[in-house]
Design a protein around this nucleic acid. Sequence first.
DNA 1: CTGTGTTCCTGTTCGC
DNA 2: TGCGAACAGGAACACA
Length: 293
Amino acid sequence: MPELPEVEIIRQGLAPLVTNARIERVVLNRANLRFPFPPQFGQRLQGQHIIQVGRRAKYLLFSLSGGQVLLTHLGMTGNFRFTRPDPTSSDVNHGFDKHDHVIFRLSGTSAPSPLLVYSDPRRFGFMDLVTDLNDCRFLNRLGPEPLGNQLTAIGLHGSLKSRKAPVKSLLLDQSVVAGLGNIYVCEALHRAGIDPRTPASDLAGDDSAPSALMDRLVREIRAVLTDALRAGGSTLQDYRNIEGKGGYFQHSFAVYDREGEACTREGCAGHISRIVQSGRSSFYCPDCQSLEP
DNA sequence: CTGTGTTCCTGTTCGC
DNA sequence: TGCGAACAGGAACACA
């Protein structure tokens, strides 16, 4: 479940290996992932050079020499790796498996193999070829990036003050804050001492200025993402960086997937609860995450 | 517009 | 041991 830190780690690993490389050939092993590939997807990529690898929210953006952008979303289980089929291997699948859906053959790469493979068992990921980044249905409605200075307490206050839905649900909404997923929303709310069920408008308060708690929330969102980045992301089952290695931030989870375990906050004797909000698990400590702002 | 529920998909885990 | 059910969840979409 790659969220912002995991996608950013992949971007950082991929960028030095593919920047300035040429896409020689693209092989699609199926017609669609979550969505159909765009028409002539492979042909339109072939012969183009990769100018740079960027990221917006959980999207990877490969800028191409022809001016277009290859947009990829990893969904739940999407991943990139380089592979070199070993001709002496007895592996009848030549190093590929049934979930390797897209193979990019590159030239001019410093990677150990010219074959960049996109695998995605659950196929929640997708790819698109975008002509105008300012007119892309996937990017148009995205909210501010939480790292950098786009996300502010004032801005978040403005987005949440009129909303009655639980703050947990809204932080998962990519149009409110871009790049958060279930893990980091749970962790940020715990760090900020906010109950995930709190109506967003209660958190925002009546004032036109952001509350201290809103300020705290923004700082904790940044902090948890920064900590996760530093740890190389979180690996539950699928996530791997471009070198095939997992991150280790999962060992620093305070609440996520810790139902029944002791709260790690100093001085708190609580135990982590799991509830379901909008069909998703929320993990929190009932003792130190308050419903009252 | 807002909030909620459904849907897609497969691998893993759990209960009987 | 085996089998089906439940679960995991990003985000588009449908709906009230």
